[in-house]
């Protein structure tokens, strides 16, 4: 007998947040319903195989206008690694000035994805002026 399964996800690829119903047979997707665009199908595929999310946090800065600077994973990373990534990113300290897009951590937790700064931050002296 074929093994059938239906799973439900909310697509988080855009603010619409479609409710997806995913019909599966033998662990394979046969049909996705509820998506208003094609990205919903790609999302369902990823949710079934390897759910991923973009990680965003801050890292410490020495000598910067602010004590921390925001960072993000350049692209989505496996969801199950988010907490490992959070711990690793928490150990990073960068030196000011920081430039937007600058890599602060290469290949985080073996995901092949870099952590990059998501804003520029000047060194401390400038704030006084």
């Amino acid at each position: 007998m074929t093994e059938r399964e239906t799973r439900k996800f909310i697509c988080v690829s855009c603010p619409v947040g479609c409710m997806l119903t995913v019909h599966m047979e033998e662990g394979r997707i046969v049909k996705v319903e509820g998506n208003a665009c094609m990205r919903g199908e790609a999302y369902a595929e990823a949710e079934v195989r390897n759910p991923t999310r973009v990680f965003a946090s801050t890292v410490k800065v020495s000598g910067g206008l602010l004590p921390v600077v925001p960072v993000r994973s350049r692209s989505a990373v496996p969801k199950e690694k988010l907490f490992d990534i959070a711990r690793e990113v928490a150990r990073v300290v960068v030196e000011a000035p920081v430039k937007i897009g600058q890599v602060v951590l290469v290949d985080v937790c073996g995901t092949g994805v870099d952590i990059v700064a998501s804003r520029s931050l000047e060194a401390e002296e400038k704030r006084a002026g």
């Binding site: 996800f9 909310i10 697509c11 988080v12 855009c14 603010p15 619409v16 947040g17 409710m19 999310r53």
Partner: peptide, 8 residues
């Protein structure tokens, strides 16, 4: 809030 924020 948005439903996607409830999810994610």
């Amino acid at each position: 809030g948005l439903r996607r924020n409830i999810a994610q």
